[in-house]
Design a protein around this nucleic acid. Structure first.
Lengths: 189, 189
DNA sequence: ACCTGAACACCGTTCAAGT
DNA sequence: ACCTGAACACCGTTCAAGT
């Protein structure tokens, strides 16, 4: 049922995920989902939870890989960007949907877990002097937020008129390189 | 009618903006809007256009104010943050709604106009050596995207667990200060 | 416990008809 | 030209009833 909803999201966006379509794709009636989920939003939240768990696992794999810290950060950011490109509706569910986020519960736990793994990668970069020694959580939030913002603006066509998606990665590269410069001269020193 | 839709957005979010409610609030029938707008999305796009025009005007006023360039940048970012706090549904319409963005036309023109004013403020900061001398459009996009991303993550409750909205402004302050440090040592030099 | 089918109260949108 | 009222094809959700 979660799988059906996920497939419908990828195929037709959030509006395509009607309980009738989910029921039909799962071979059950259109209101059988109510026996397993409190509402349509709860079903969508379950999809989002699954994706957050996947994100956390992927970040963990990147972090424990063999690359240099700065390269791991780039890889993690690419994971986010690629996910947003390949599964835009699911990405929006994760980071752009207040109604879904309000569900809380497992969803919030899995979201924090994914962020914690990302934070670990940022901390490793700081330890390796590849990022400035500002508070780690704020820095990780800033990097994540910038990636998220670039993705959102690109998706809305509200970014650099002439460029397309590639500008997301090049903008991120610019940010990381600017921050590395900052790392060599700590603010306040 | 645009005013009715705007009020409904502020009061109850996007889902409250039904054509029946708009018609009732405007003293007309529930499908009279179709004589003025091609669809519900077109009406929402008209609301977004109005807000983009307001944003462009506000940015322009900031830019031509008496403050120092760096202060103008801070003011412009605050305008965005405050708008997102006071009118979350309208903010989402501007920057988080692919369906609305796809309408194009006047909406896109007004969006580009707002970005152009913001770009001007960034350029002034670069001229005053308050921001690094990287390509101006990319830098403006980066600053805007970061602000947008921080707002979105804060709205989704997906940011620093312990902090709230104030962390958006403090994170932005951190970014600008880090970029100012970078400005003193250009990358590649 | 889990599922079904009908029903309810909504939607956006269309259309024939009025002025 | 602009508006109305009824109608159509959907929704999410509820509920009595089945197994």
């Amino acid at each position: 049922m979660i799988a059906s909803a996920t497939a419908l999201l990828d195929a037709g966006g959030e509006s395509a995920v009607t309980l009738r379509a989910v029921g039909h794709a799962s071979g059950i009636s259109h209101n059988a989902p109510y026996k397993h989920f409190k509402s349509r939003d709860a079903l969508l939240a379950a999809v989002a939870t699954t994706d957050f768990v996947w994100l956390a696992d992927t970040f963990r794999a990147v972090r424990h890989g063999a690359s240099a810290p700065a390269s791991k950060l780039t890889q993690a950011l690419k994971v986010i960007v690629h996910f947003s490109v390949e599964h835009p509706a699911r990405y929006r569910l994760l980071f752009n949907d207040p109604e879904i986020a309000a569900v809380g519960g497992d969803l919030e736990v899995s979201a924090r877990s994914a962020f914690a793994e990302f934070l670990g990668i940022v901390q490793d970069c700081q330890a390796a002097q590849k990022l400035p020694a500002v508070p780690d959580i704020a820095l990780a939030g800033l990097l994540f937020a910038t990636t998220h913002g670039l993705i959102g603006l690109a998706a809305s066509g509200r970014m650099h008129p002439e460029k397309g998606l590639s500008s997301v990665e090049s903008s991120l590269k610019m940010l990381v390189s600017l921050l590395q410069v900052s790392g060599t001269k700590l603010p306040g020193s």
